[in-house]
Design a protein around this nucleic acid. Structure first.
Lengths: 361, 361
DNA sequence: CTGAAAGCGCTTACAG
DNA sequence: CTGAAAGCGCTTACAG
């Protein structure tokens, strides 16, 4: 079923009655080949189905046109959207992609993963594994020596290291400010696992927004989840006890928010009437929950594309000798998508007060 | 920031005062090296941070330990779950992974993708791109010659080709039978795009189950969607017109089913009271819709793992000379997850009739 | 136990 | 315009 032998340049040369150098010239579209010779060689290539061996070529040229990609477990939905952007841009720029993914992160595996990629002579690496726990310990030096250009996604900024992040803090702040504008006054938070850098940033966004509006941040007003919907539901039940006045929740991802949505409905709590809800991520599904979920969207596909673009530039810069010392961190802005879950119905007009916005001017 | 030169075996040899062959022996843990020599060489390797060049090694050994993976656009959630299984098993079996993904499928790109992978001397390929339209035209020969062992996922079975599928027809049948058992009698179907093989199979499952139960299959009882939630909602509205008696829908994927769910609720239609609903895929989110969605779960991660396992066996078999001609198609069974969206409330006891199951025996 | 020779499949100067 | 020579970084026999 499979014919094992792939023809080599030597066989093409023999069949064409020329030397391997001449075949090489034809393959690489060099001008200095006699038209007849070129035709003959091309014909033989066609007949034999010859394809140059990329390994041999890379070995002699000292260039693989290959990028390494390191990701988290691909069951996490975000990662695969990033990977999508990476594959697109890599294709466009002519890079092959070697993929390594951590299943469960173990610090001792970092060297292994890195060495594996390097032994394959990748020209650069996109480190798309998010910062969790101490999985950046290996980078915590003043200015770490990297064996090839690398771009890091989703981690705390470190000296001399090119990182690209969504501004999670700004995202959290946006979410909470929106809820405040809508008139919610007791805004709880369900965070992701706090060993994730992203979780901490989103939580910080929540705190910042509250403080900027002169509100207290209280430890009974938030709780930690594990990103899963079921956990979101459970944590919400807990918050109802610890924070009785709660009238809104900013949840650190959409999946947990969907859990909250379900739990709230099961308790007969009206969203957005009695509880405002904002998630984070912008999953397509979130638009189709009941009610549709307001969320902080991050375009992770764009993140992936940008990472490859930047890596490409770094590689080219380095190759050309102009060694730009290091690239500044890049911050991407997430985007608030306002849907029904956070649209507080207008307060009933009581007559006893005057609407604030109506009488001035 | 990046130190360009990686040391070679030659440098290690010079520093150690031995020949490159001896270094090679040490690297590969050969027994025939004097203990002192080995120690000395290991020390130098350590100091220089030497790593053998996988390219050179592969070239001489004629073995890359690399698998190619071809996927659909990774924004489709299913693909990334499959990819997750693939990376796990590849890691476990010691294969590196080269990833190619189609963004928009173009027939003329098949050769390109294939050649690209082959020029990198991959030892096998997992074709995880599903069968859509005529994207299997290149395989439609009596017994196609494949340049390396390949495993095909999610396509119509073809002679001499190893394919691994979920039994989508059985899945559709299961879904509809379940709805029938629940007492629904007018079961509509929203299919995926019919140029997808999976869509056609699921639809066939729906038809089969209806016919097996002596019910008519009518063209006004189904309509085609595009996998998206918004389309699911739109198609449902359409079916309400064309199939007024409809009391249940089997939807070809969860995302569209979520769209139906939302549209139905917005029209004040009770699920599962007035409309039974079953999806397909088993997205984690589906458990957290309101009401939770009954769905046909396919463990795509397992599919990916199995593909790599099987590919590995094919490669080993071929290498060892025992050439097993080809592997039989494998069918995996999807699994019905029953949740609230399909649990028809017991019919009200009217008194005028006798409950069918209560009086016999 | 160790090294000289040959070669994997290419490309890069260098002659002619 | 074309070919002989050298070499990319390794490993595999083959001597000793």
């Amino acid at each position: 079923m499979t014919n094992l032998k792939r023809p080599t340049i030597k066989e093409v040369a023999i069949q064409s009655g020329v030397s391997v150098q001449t075949v090489s010239r034809v393959i690489n579209n060099r001008p200095d080949v006699a038209p007849d010779t070129r035709l003959k060689v091309q014909e033989v290539i066609q007949v034999l189905g010859y394809q140059p061996n990329a390994l041999a070529r890379s070995l002699i040229q000292q260039r693989t046109n290959t990028l390494g990609v390191v990701t988290n477990n691909l069951n996490f939905i975000g990662v695969s959207r990033t990977l999508n952007g990476i594959t697109h841009m890599a294709e466009e720029l002519g890079y092959a992609l070697q993929l390594k993914s951590f299943h469960a992160f173990k610090p001792e595996e970092v060297a292994e993963v890195l060495n594996d990629l390097l032994s394959h002579q990748v020209e650069g690496i996109v480190w798309a594994m998010p910062e969790i726990g101490n999985n950046r310990l290996w980078l915590d030096q003043e200015c770490p020596d990297l064996p090839v250009p690398m771009v890091f996604l989703t981690m705390q900024v470190r000296p001399c290291l090119p990182v690209i992040n969504f501004d999670n803090l700004a995202g959290g702040r946006m979410a909470v400010n929106h809820l405040l504008q809508q008139g919610y006054r007791h805004i709880a938070h369900i965070s992701g696992p706090l060993d994730w850098w992203e979780s901490r940033q989103r939580k910080l966004g929540w705190e910042t927004a509250l403080q900027e509006n002169g509100m207290m941040v209280n430890d009974s007003h938030w709780a930690e989840g594990d990103w899963s919907a079921s956990c979101g539901a459970a944590v919400y039940q807990h918050l109802k006890e610890s924070y009785a006045q709660m009238d809104a929740v900013f949840v650190a991802n959409d999946q947990m928010a969907l859990g909250v949505l379900q739990a709230a409905r099961n308790s007969g709590i009206d969203i957005p009437g009695s509880l405002g809800l904002v998630g984070f991520d912008g999953l397509p599904e979130s638009a189709f929950s009941v009610p549709p979920l307001t969320t902080v969207f991050q375009d992770q596909s764009a993140l992936g594309s940008l990472a490859v673009t930047q890596l490409h530039e770094m590689i080219e810069t380095q190759r050309s000798g102009r060694l730009k010392p290091f690239t500044e961190p890049v911050w991407l802005n997430p985007e608030l998508i306002i849907r029904h879950s956070s649209q507080k119905p207008q307060a009933v007009y009581l007559g006893s007060g005057i609407p604030q916005t109506a009488n001035h001017k």
